[in-house]
Amino acid sequence: QAAVVDIISGGRLDLGLGAGYRIPEFELFGADPAKRYGATDRRVRELRQIWAEGRVTPRPVQERLPIWLGYLGPQGARRAGLLGENLLSAFGPIAEPYRKGLAEAGHAPETARMAGGIQGWVSDDPERDWPVIGGYLAYQLDSYRRHMVEGTGAPTPRPVDPDRVRAREASKSPIDYFHYGTPEEVASGIRAFVGDAPVDTVYLWASLGGMPADLVARHVDIVCTRLAPLLRETSAPATPSAR
């Protein structure tokens, strides 16, 4: 499937892989969630071997199709480095274990490449919009938190307080923080989040769960016309672009 998409797109596919987290999905395939990280690593090696040996035809257009591993913590970052793959996270503090993993496995540390999602929302009037945005944020986070415990026997988590989420310092967990503010404030937050990590691209939600189309369109416009230029400023060459 990846090879076909790479061909159709003219060699523009980046393949992202994650370990998963929902227990019902593991049960559906008789898989052990406790072994999901090792299984993900094996899948990467198998994909590389299949393509290298020409065991599927047609082959991808790209000589080495980019694989991005969605590991968010330091141990996962090291695993991505050991495999010599890209790291699908923009969280600056895990760049060091990622580079160490690359070096440990004989890969050049300067080949480190990171990109990832930023949890946040950009507004031209944050205080005006927050009562609405905060409600959609709470709905989305509560949905994720229910999914996390489904099938585990654990109780459903209490509803989140969006004000507390907004006030937290950004972290590796995508459900524990939320960058919110003007384009300038969000750009500053993204720079602090990324630090000096080798991040060249970040992406944001266009919408939060259940939002009407007009609100989504307004957000897409402000991200593209006001946030993205701030992240592309030549005065900050290490700053990622927004997608």
Rank of each mutant, 00 (worst) to 15 (best):
Q1M: 15
A2D: 03
A3G: 08
V5T: 04
R12G: 01
R12I: 00
L13C: 00
D14L: 06
Y21I: 06
E25G: 00
L28S: 09
L28Q: 08
F29V: 01
A31H: 09
P33T: 09
Y37F: 15
G38H: 06
T40Y: 03
R42W: 05
R45K: 11
E46H: 12
Q49R: 14
A52Y: 07
E53P: 05
P58A: 03
V61H: 02
Q62M: 01
Q62S: 07
R64Y: 00
W68M: 10
Y71S: 12
Y71V: 06
P74H: 04
Q75W: 12
A80K: 02
N86W: 03
S89R: 00
I94P: 05
A95C: 03
R99M: 06
E104V: 10
A105E: 02
A108R: 12
A108N: 12
E110K: 05
E110G: 03
E110N: 04
T111L: 09
G116N: 05
I118W: 12
I118S: 07
Q119D: 15
G120I: 02
V122F: 02
D124R: 06
D125S: 12
W130G: 04
W130R: 01
P131E: 03
V132Q: 05
I133Y: 06
G134K: 04
G135A: 05
G135D: 08
L137I: 09
S143Y: 14
H147A: 15
M148P: 05
E150Q: 14
G153E: 10
G153A: 10
T156K: 15
R158L: 15
V160T: 11
P162K: 08
D163G: 12
R164F: 05
R168N: 15
I175G: 15
D176Q: 15
Y177G: 06
Y177D: 11
Y180R: 12
G181I: 10
G181V: 09
E184Y: 13
V186R: 11
V186N: 06
V186M: 11
R191C: 02
G195A: 01
D196V: 04
D196C: 03
A197Q: 04
D200I: 01
V202S: 14
Y203M: 14
A206C: 11
S207V: 07
G210E: 06
P212L: 01
A213I: 12
D214C: 10
V216N: 07
V216T: 15
H219S: 06
V220M: 13
I222R: 10
T225C: 03
A228V: 08
L230G: 08
L230I: 10
L231S: 10
A236I: 05
P237S: 08
T239E: 11
R243Y: 10
